[in-house]
Amino acid sequence: MNCPFHILIFKSHMRSYRELPLKIFELGTVYRFEKSGVLHGLMRTRGFTQDDSHIFCTREQIVPQLQELVTFVLEILRAFGFTDFEADISTRPVDKSVGSDEDWQLATDALFETIEASGLPYQVAEGEGAFYGPKIDIHLRDAIGRRWQLSTIQVDFQMGNRFGIEYVGADNERHQVIMIHRALFGSIERFFAILVEHYAGAFPVWLAPVQVGVLPVAERHHAYAHRVVDRLRSGGHRVELLPAHSDTLGARVRKAKLEKLPYVLVVGDSDAEEGTVGVNRRGTDDPERGVPLDDFVEQLGADVIEHA
């Protein structure tokens, strides 16, 4: 429900066709009074943050904008490892609708064309569109095959009129702006919950709250362990040191595993001498000993940017 705010920003000065499409984006926190019985962790809250976008465009730009949007949405969702997508296209309701026949045809055809070009399986919800425009919902399947609705791309023929949003065309005449509303994650909170469940808490390295745990075997390895931590932090990584005095090595390794740390580095005498680390990669049982720290730093860097 950030549309009115974005519209006011658009209206802050008279816009020329040269400025369109104008795409406004905000991580906007909104509040909804949900009944207690339907609240569900982060999936259904009373305060949540939408990744809310509004695209202000001309009639001619509707088609390329919708195509760009679908491509963009899929690109972002794929970065999280999702591969299984489906679309629902909601078409013009039978009774009441706003907007000309041509506009509805144009927008609906564009949605179909775009989805068909994307190769996504899709279903049509005949007549289920809002009275002010057709829309696409994009669903994905998580690691255990559950279907989640994620993104919504909603064409809006009415809002321009309600708020009197216009632009000056190449003909020097005023024309009504078309709006496209778009939520990609839906809400950060809900998407985060879906990610937690999809990964079962084992976030990929680039997302993990702590990416590397450094475990000195004994007190005398602390100085070296601190140097390893500093080296990794200077690369912008999220690192935690689990000191020798806090618990036995075995207990610390178990704790790091429970916290699903992507990497656990154990450093002992030979490591301090030779500038190496013992690498425990999440999901493997056998550590790789004596890995030169430089090699590990390079590997870690590669792992983190892999998602893009």
Binding site: E26, L27, S53
Partner: peptide, 30 residues
């Protein structure tokens, strides 16, 4: 803090990708 660290990466990624795709970031009141 741990949840916030993940959320920050998520939001930074989202903002960076949007700006790379021609979106303009704004802030508005609640």
């Amino acid at each position: 803090p741990k949840g916030a660290a993940v959320r920050k990466v998520l939001e930074d990624f989202s903002r960076e990708r949007h700006e790379a795709n021609g979106y303009e970031l704004v802030f508005s009141p609640h």
